[in-house]
Design a protein around this nucleic acid. Structure first.
Length: 763
DNA sequence: TTTATCCCTATTTTT
DNA sequence: TAGGGATAAA
């Protein structure tokens, strides 16, 4: 039988084949990096269609990004022929959620109270909404950071907790505030006829609770379900997918616990660790052969990840050649680091060994991309930055999109506020006028847009009164007039034409003609217009909805094109998951950055965060096929201050024989000669030397702005601005600093660096 | 209501 | 360092 069907199994190893043909029942595939999991997924889907005879629309495949979905689809088409994936449901969890909500407009209206044209609020919108909610509740946003509130809300939603349910679980005063904000946030969200990202996952389940038949229809339809990157699913996603698989029980998940890097987004690693306990009769398959990287890289990665405790113990191995040693390099500061990387890329390209698009530079924080970009700007090497300030999140783009959104969903108060605040059209229309308009609208069950339009004499038919804007109502009338025109035109013209009408009638075009900055912004808007033209052929009534939805669900990597010849990729470690490059640079491999300082703060009582940082580094390392460079800076500017850096602890795990380290920059600066020091020792030495150099050079006549470290002694009572009251348990000398172990009343024991913690001794 | 200026804090990571 | 937000002045 297998010989006959072997076309789809050719070139697969026995384990991969097993993963392809085990079609019935739950299957867990633990797939190490570079072990061919995408291949398994595509071949399995092809197998289901061709060999099992499943209709594509009975298959649901969930991927982490749209890009991954598109790639898989085209790979299957290549295997089975064009059009063979028609009907196949493939996309991210979020797009699946939208799909379910859009397919059940009646239920959505009845049970959730959302109109069919509901908007999806992105991260920025969510933040604005959280701020709004705080304001409504008269809470000080400085004391209760909107981001904190938001993460509390998101966490609750990811665990399927309503505000009331969350209220039952609150322990502290802060928690109670989260509940209050959550409640208000939900109210405003619904009033705006909008949902947030978390809702896209949770609301389908609400729907299913309300109407079991809806669930049954999907259960019946999806005979085979596949989930990629399963290690990064959260509770809601788990509940949703197991619900959908309830009828046929053919749930196939692929993942790697060692690559779980979204814990902060409530990803729950236990989903994959407990999969076989949750679903009896699971077939478990391990893919451990790495086909991607050189042996040096694979060995380094393997050693590195073994330091984690929360994992399935296993090895990754490869038959690939040994390859070059891993290059470890210390640089004097972030500028030297960037220059070294760019110079090295130039070298690799000029000797013809690699092209620019073979190369990726990865980093922990998006802020690091700036220095790199500056270094590239003065060269002729093309580059692209994945992520960073996203196109659709640029101010000017959001402004114009806000108008589109408002026209599509006039309940969208956030967009209204945005327009009035940022476009010339809104001048003179302040909070007070807005309040008047809102009150007028609310009392009549109309929208704020209706209110301003009604203020125009004769704009609406007789019978409707005009809102009373005390003082000069000129602004309201002007805005109302513009809205009336826009609303009317929107009905009949294409999106691109609508763009022209919007920038004209709002005065926005006119306002972007003055500075250099304006030109940049206008250029971005033209790009937006070009983007809108893609919807030229779509029915205008449909086009807007489709476009807005596409915009809100797009991910950074989704917009990555594969045919960017010669461009070097600059990307965060998170976004790099699932990708591979012949040459990889990981920059900023320093304590405080990788692992990020935030993870270190919690280290003493919980290593979870630290382990996730290690996995993140592991993900980066395993992206490299042939060459891997690790760089760190002895000094780095953070918050506008130079701080000396210590090489990441993760480097210590990598066996010396796999590494070729050099620190030319350090030795040329401070004369540290190469001895038998390991890279790490030398790095620490160099950083000390450089620090001394900087302060000794007496940059100016003012006293060195070195922080005065209070003389902490065990037993002292202290106060920390963030952690509150505590008592010092222990004081440990650390190079040029002190490490203080403090038992805080509120947050437990923490280890802090004395020079960094703004902690006072309480007399 | 708008604009200028100053101060303060924050940077993880993203669907 | 930079961007947001508060405050003051017009």
């Amino acid at each position: 039988m297998l010989t006959e069907q072997s076309r789809l199994l050719t070139g697969l190893n026995p384990e991969q084949q097993r993963a392809v043909v085990t079609t019935e029942g739950p299957v867990l595939v633990v797939a190490g990096p570079g072990s061919g999991k995408t291949r398994v997924l595509t071949h399995r889907i092809a197998w289901l269609i061709e060999e099992v005879g499943t209709s594509p629309d009975q298959i649901l495949a969930v991927t982490f990004t749209n890009k991954a979905a598109n790639e898989m689809r085209s790979r299957i088409n290549r295997l089975l022929g064009d059009g063979s994936t028609n009907g196949l449901v493939m996309g991210t969890f979020h797009s699946l959620g939208v799909r379910i909500l859009r397919q059940n407009p009646g239920l959505v209206a009845d049970r959730i109270g959302l109109l069919p044209n509901f908007m999806i609020y992105d991260a920025g919108d969510q933040l604005d909404l959280a701020k709004d909610s705080l304001k409504t509740l008269k809470l000080d946003p400085r004391q209760y950071a909107p981001r904190r509130m938001l993460s509390g809300i998101s966490k609750a939603k990811s665990h399927l907790l309503s505000p009331d349910e969350l209220a039952d679980l609150t322990a502290t005063h802060d928690d109670e505030l989260v509940v209050r904000v959550y409640r208000e946030y939900e109210r405003e969200l619904r009033a705006a006829n909008a949902v947030d990202f978390d809702d896209l996952l949770a609301l389908p389940l609400r729907l299913f609770d309300a109407d079991e038949r809806a669930l049954q229809r999907y259960q019946e339809q999806f005979r085979y379900i596949l989930v990629d990157e399963y290690q990064d699913t959260n509770k809601v996603q788990y509940v949703l997918i197991t619900a959908l698989a309830g009828r046929w029980n053919n749930l196939f998940v692929v993942g790697d616990p060692d690559q779980s890097i979204y814990g902060w987004r409530q990803a729950d690693i236990t989903n994959i660790l407990n999969f076989k306990n949750d679903l009896p009769d699971t077939t478990e398959i391990h893919l451990e052969v790495n086909y991607r990287s050189t042996r040096h890289i694979v060995q380094a990665a393997d050693r590195l990840i073994r330091d984690n405790t929360q994992r399935i113990d296993r090895a990754i191995r490869t038959d690939n050649a040994e390859g070059e040693p891993i290059a470890l390099r210390e640089l004097a500061d972030q500028h030297h680091e960037a220059q070294f990387i760019v110079g090295e890329i130039r070298r690799l390209v000029s000797i013809g060994a690699y092209t620019g698009d073979n190369v990726a530079i990865m980093y922990r924080t998006t802020a690091q991309s700036r220095v790199l970009e500056e270094a590239f700007r003065v060269t002729d090497i093309p580059y692209r930055i994945v992520g960073g300030v996203r196109f659709y999140e640029r101010r000017e783009v959001k402004d114009v999109l806000a108008m589109f959104r408002l026209l599509h969903n006039p309940f969208d108060r956030l967009s209204f506020e945005r327009i009035v605040a940022n476009m010339p059209m809104g001048r003179g229309f302040g909070p007070r006028a807005q309040e008047t308009a809102q009150v007028w609208a609310d009392s009549r069950g109309l929208t704020i847009v209706d209110a301003v339009i009604a203020s125009v004499p004769g704009a609406l038919g007789a019978g409707l009164d005009r809102p009373d804007f005390s003082g000069p109502g000129a602004a309201a009338e002007r805005i109302g007039g513009a809205f009336a025109v826009l609303r009317e035109r929107a009905k009949s013209i294409s999106l691109a034409e609508m763009f022209d009408v919007i920038v004209e009638h709002t005065g926005y075009r006119e306002s972007l003609k003055h500075t250099e900055d304006d030109l940049d912004r206008w250029a971005n808007l033209l790009e937006l217009r070009a983007d809108l033209e893609r919807y030229e052929s779509v029915d205008p009534a449909e086009a807007l909805n489709a476009y807005l939805e596409q915009v809100s669900l797009i991910a950074d990597v989704d917009s990555m094109k594969d045919d960017q010849q010669g461009q070097v990729t600059l990307i965060t470690l998170h976004s790099a998951k699932g990708l591979e490059f012949p040459v990889v640079f990981i920059s900023g491999v320093e304590e405080g950055l990788l692992p990020i300082s935030r993870a270190l703060e919690t280290e003493s009582f919980d290593t979870t965060a630290l382990e996730e940082e290690r996995r993140l580094f592991y993900v980066g390392v395993t992206r490299a096929k042939n060459l891997l460079y690790l760089t760190y800076a002895a000094n780095r500017m953070t918050y506008g201050r130079y701080q000396s850096g210590v090489p990441s602890r993760f480097l210590q795990a990598i066996p010396a024989e796999l590494v070729r380290e050099s620190s030319r920059a350090a030795s040329s600066r401070s004369g540290v000669s190469s001895g038998r020091l390991s890279g790490i020792d030398r790095g620490m030495l160099a950083s000390q030397v450089t620090t001394t150099t900087v302060s000794a050079s007496g940059l100016n006549d003012r006293p060195t702005p070195k922080l005065v470290i209070p003389s902490f002694v065990a037993g002292q009572r202290v106060f920390h601005p963030k952690f509150g009251d505590g008592q010092i348990l222990e004081v440990l000398p650390r190079r040029d600093d002190l490490e203080v172990v403090v038992a805080f009343v509120r947050v437990g024991t923490k280890r802090l660096m004395a020079s960094l913690a703004r902690m006072d001794i309480v007399e």
